[in-house]
Amino acid sequence: MNLSTSNSAVGAIFIALLGGAIKTSTPYLFVSLGETLTEKAGRVNLGLEGTLMMGAVTGFGASLFSGNPFVGVLAAGGAGLLMGALHAWLCSFRRVSSIAVGIALMIFGTGLAFYLGKPLIQPQAPHLPAIDLGFWTTNPALKEALQINVLFIAGVVLAPLLAWFLASTRWGLILRLCGENVEAARAKGIQPERVRLLATAAGGFLAGIGGSFLSLYYPGTWTEGLSTGQGLLAVALVIFSRWNPLLCLVTSLLFGALGSLGAALQAAGLSQGFYLFGTVPALMALGLMILTSGKKRGVSGRPAELSVHT
């Protein structure tokens, strides 16, 4: 391999990673932002994989029947909102484990999505549009990588907005208070259960929208194998991101890029050991965990009320 072809191979891999980051990060981003909101209020919702699938199938169905993909996105958000509210309602009973409810709803949501989706495997629903930000380049690969979906842009805008909401608004403060010290919240006359209901429902809304991205844009179809665990991994991303919406954006982009590494390297002719490429995101996750936590530091940024027994 001479220098110029190896340069072009590196360039192609870089473009593929950029495209992968933009194309496949959106579900991670929406689910992790939603989960950040929920966890900041002191509740863990592990069921977002099920919410993601419900969002995907509802979004696809609504887009198909209305002919408008944005109706699909809203419907997906609505389905996610209901799933989130269901989680919060079940958790509002005393001595109910939110972890167990989350796992139950993950299985329930996935199963219900499969059931509702049976007639939707064959038809093709209208896709979400993309904005062409690659108009300035003649490189077809780069041009394709810069086809930016509206939901991706919405997610990029949402991340700082959410950070500002949590840090600088009265409602954000109330929400964080419920996550940090539930007794103090009660003393202030706040009803933590109500705040958590709203936060979990809003988190579900975002996760549902993340699902609609899968079925309405990339890969843009409804199949039962649509999610390869993005909803689960996104919950883990919240921990790497230290409950910080801006870091959620960074880690989502990183995991989107890493997920497309295997395909990019093989397309460039580097195929030895391709089984290992698939493990890179998981290795990365482990590495980040080891690097960012330690005996002394603990898991900084974690809302104090987050514990497995409430």
Partner: peptide, 18 residues
Amino acid sequence: VFTGGWSMPTQEANAANS
């Protein structure tokens, strides 16, 4: 391009685009 699984829609789309 091997995707590693029989049904991996996102990986298949990534592979086709790459």
